[in-house]
Amino acid sequence: MEQVIANGLYLGAQYALIALGLTLIFALMNVLNFAHGQMYVLGGFVTYTIYGQLKLPFVVALICSGVTLAIIGALMEKFLFRTVIRRSKREESTMLLAAATAFFLDAVMLLLFGEKQRGVPKIISGVFISERVILPYDRILVGVVAILMIAAFMVFMQYSRPGRAMRALAQDRVAAQLMGVKVERYSMIGFALGAMLAGVVGGLLVSITGVNSGIGGPISIKAFLMVMIGGAGVVGGAIAGGFILGMMESVGLATLREYGDITYLAIFALLMIFLSIRPHGLMGKPWG
């Protein structure tokens, strides 16, 4: 059982970090970013190139992943989403744009990085072995880094000037504008931050799970699942959703294995029942 809990916590930390960027962008701009998974993949490929191919330190690669995706996110917001939001009254326009961006990034990555699965050398070797738990050190490290990053993100959102501005923006866009918050600037910063989180977590996890150009879609779906559990647009909800999904996956795989692949069937069935009772997820969207 201890092993199952350890697996669940570790998976949950990963998942929560993946969902954070998605929920941030949704909270700020009401945009369902279908390209979130592709941004994660691109971050993975940047780390693969810099750490795996160019043999530079892992930390440098991780920073490059974050910076690259932040720039891409900012450009996407400025030239694509801002334009569409300004010109279209229909919310589905941004969804279509996000879906198109996802397909575009998929195609570009397939061209640039090929169809193969890519991996990098382990950042730390060895396995922690006790009587009840076996966990490789690199997974422990990634889990700890993920939790630290989540904490740093929450501190940033709570106490920094841009964080406060973004929270104000998420609560009420018009009121924030009237109070002097520069909506366009902080929307761009928020989108860049969301993309950066996707890139950093992609880079972080490439050391364990590798990366290939086709996994963006499934990553996005899983991130949406977490956001739906926790409540769209709520940072705490995304974190809770990540840990709940990780734990459900771990427990389900350990206890239901005799019955074939019904873990995700059970998760989806539970999610349907849960959403019919709480359509806004665990924490709802407090500001909208």
Binding site: V4, Q14, R139, E249, A254, D261
Partner: peptide, 21 residues
């Protein structure tokens, strides 16, 4: 000893899947 264990094709970390096997 195991003939029913499966995983989702988009699984990225197989530790929980393989632990019982």
């Amino acid at each position: 000893v195991a003939e029913k264990d499966t995983y989702q094709n988009d699984t990225r970390d197989f530790t929980p899947v393989l632990t019982p096997i």
